[in-house]
Design a protein around this nucleic acid. Sequence first.
DNA 1: ATATTATCTTCTGCTAGAGAAAAAATCTGC
DNA 2: GCAGATTTTTTCTCTAGCAGAAGATAATAT
Lengths: 404, 404
Amino acid sequence: MVAIGVPDTGDDGGPAAGRVLTLLHRRGPLTRAAVTAELGLAASAVGTALGDLTALDLVRIGEPLRGSSGAPPGRGRPSPVVEVNPDGPVAVAVQLSADRVTVSLVGLDRRISHVRKHVLDGSETDPATLIPALADAVSDAALRTERRCVGVCVAMPGFIREPDGFVRSALHLGWNEVPLAQQLGSMSPIGVPVAVGRAATLAALAEFRYGAGRGAASMLALSSERVGVGGGFIDADIPLTGGGHALEAGHIIVEPGGLPCPCGARGCLEMYADSRALLRAAGPRPHPGHEDTVTEIFDDATAGDRAAQEAIRLTAGHLVTGLTSLVNTLAPERVVLMGFLADLYRAAKDFVRDGLMASSAVARAGQIDIVTGDLRHAALVGAAEKAFAPLLRQPRTILRTDPS
Amino acid sequence: MVAIGVPDTGDDGGPAAGRVLTLLHRRGPLTRAAVTAELGLAASAVGTALGDLTALDLVRIGEPLRGSSGAPPGRGRPSPVVEVNPDGPVAVAVQLSADRVTVSLVGLDRRISHVRKHVLDGSETDPATLIPALADAVSDAALRTERRCVGVCVAMPGFIREPDGFVRSALHLGWNEVPLAQQLGSMSPIGVPVAVGRAATLAALAEFRYGAGRGAASMLALSSERVGVGGGFIDADIPLTGGGHALEAGHIIVEPGGLPCPCGARGCLEMYADSRALLRAAGPRPHPGHEDTVTEIFDDATAGDRAAQEAIRLTAGHLVTGLTSLVNTLAPERVVLMGFLADLYRAAKDFVRDGLMASSAVARAGQIDIVTGDLRHAALVGAAEKAFAPLLRQPRTILRTDPS
DNA sequence: ATATTATCTTCTGCTAGAGAAAAAATCTGC
DNA sequence: GCAGATTTTTTCTCTAGCAGAAGATAATAT
């Protein structure tokens, strides 16, 4: 039973140059020999791929590892370290949230530079005002560097139609039916593709590839920043997008007939498990400032305050209910909690973990890990991933464009 | 801005022969010209692929369409119709449920033959008893035909570790940690790969490709046969497996703190939306027989019986709650209801549809269709899909094996 | 210094498919 | 009934991309 006649190139996965570049982007500096072994390619194929990639200024071939710099020298011909060129192309990564805009440049090494933050006041969130300003900021960032810009991606909350970056609706900004990618593309003089993605999905992608999700086959991320709960799910390196509508995890129903949610339903998770819900559960508190009071509740609970502990348990209990439904649906190998939910989890670790194990047969069968996120700019990194994707897949096609 | 130097083979997607065979399997008879246009391949590539496939007896090249048989003749050289060989290879598709076993042969044209059903009594469900019997039945089916058997797939409920067909647990059969695929493979004298898959996922896959899900980008299927609720989700032609644990949709929580479920949680969907739940909601009824009474409730409701209508609304309301959470999580383009849930939906169509639209912002944004399933042997067809997958991907590699 | 080892480079060969040109099979108009 | 017109198939040539073998290279080990 031996296959004959066909060389069986395995899973293929596209041209070698793309696979090599993707590997270096994902895993950082590697020796040439490691690249060859990792990809299962012939040494000659890796050789030509790396030759092309260096010619395109996408990767840099360094010195072989020596005594001082890391690994043991070993016998045989030393293998030079290859890595993504830190002065190579950049992507413009933008994060657009309800109260501020962040524009940054991200390299293939995922280093973030040229960060510009702008706090929005209510008068600026109108698409007709915000988009031209954003286009300026993007062009500005792209033109301020010598490095070649290969793409733009905006991470924002809302319902996004991914293929064409069309914003169906973004409640926090009050947007409806805005062709963001198209408008941004036509207003920016830098002729590169513009993509738009759901912030929660992109942040989840970043955590999956470079953060708390590393190594998992699938990962569910839940995050909350003060108000609302968002989610992202990645399986086999592919985010579940649902055409831009998936993982509205804040609107899992955890209390049928409960509090009305602006989304139209009653008893949504985000009415019961975000920071407002904790404040409500804790009852009146001395200091009115929002952030302070939330951290105060966590501090009080640690110090032994029964009322604070009770409020945390109540809120965490709703999180467990939501997690049970989500885990039984998606069966992630790992759950990553970010923002307020990470704080909540840290304050009630065993309660959440034991609760989920007790109520979810999938969690029991699947050996689920619950962890907190560990990336600082997950959404920006995720946006860069999306902007870089075409280049990583087909480096030659993307860069060998007529510059005239 | 024109890409030069690279032929841009597009998405590739593997060797042409596999793509052609897959297309014919999925879409049925097509003209040669249609195949070329559909796949975007050069005519010469399609020519050699079809040549190879006919040489392997996988496809049959028929007569060009003529006046009588279908389409208008048209000008130019007539294009012969090509189709999957109806006497070509078969897969053994097995459905294993709590109370019976079905063994059948399925061709690349999805025609099902040699169906053998066996009703299980309690004494036969032990793995040590059932698996050898199943191995016999499978070999028997494979040897009774002249056609070449290329694979076996068992569809069954439970937690399945897909890659190696290991049954983590199957509550209905009382199984735990059973290496089904491996045992079946070693007991059957026919040397072909054996796969095992979750029945609900495979049925959903069949509906997605050939049934009520055709044409949708993503699809959620929910089914119920008397007891329990199962689900499947397909996105971009790929089922969400979660390592065999995904879409335990029956264990979405719809009533926190509600009825205890054998899974360990309280308030699971399947405690509130299967046929037992409807019977409970309807209260005592004259006739004790199960099936009769359920259809009787539907009939009474149609006839105007208020109590029956109320019971249906109550049960359907819970279905809406569960659907809301599922739809907000997965954002399917279409929802397919099967079995009892299809009956329930037919009895309360507007109630379910309006309820979901009212409570799910994702449903409102995404234009979700709710439909009932329309395949009779969805699980068997899905099992055959899984068994055929390697052949469809690489026809040459799979069949050019040394028959010695 | 010489052997050993691991890696890299060059060269040849093969496969899959693109693309152009030629051949085939039907229809249309006269 | 015959000459184009039209569409499709076939044949042929050519290239990209990678595998595999053989030789070159640069370190360590003796």
